[in-house]
């Protein structure tokens, strides 16, 4: 059950914009910077996902180990 789907839209938006930036930079012949921009976008999304995952693991811990 997903109560708050805004994080999904946020990640989707970041993906779209990073893809646009990548395309534009690549068209102008700045391959390295394009790769770098994609990497930065990926890391940002990764951090967000890891935050969500850590929340999930906390929940599981509190359910099965009876402690916060």
């Amino acid at each position: 059950m997903i109560t708050d789907a805004s994080i999904l839209f946020q990640i989707a938006g970041i993906g779209i914009i990073v893809a646009l930036i990548h395309t534009i930079l690549k068209q102008m012949g700045k391959e390295e910077i394009a790769q770098f921009a994609t990497l930065v976008g990926f890391i940002i999304v990764l951090v967000m996902v890891i935050n969500g995952l850590s929340d999930l693991f906390q929940q599981i811990k509190s359910v099965f180990l009876f402690q916060g």
Binding site: Q10, I14, I17, V18, I21, I24, L25, Q27, M28, G29
Partner: peptide, 23 residues
């Protein structure tokens, strides 16, 4: 020729990116 158009688009996209990050 190379960069003047790219810089314009990149400015707009960077703004959009930051907004989505902070939203």
């Amino acid at each position: 020729f190379k960069y003047s158009k790219m810089v314009k688009t990149l400015g707009f996209l960077a703004g959009l990116f930051i907004i989505i990050l902070l939203f």
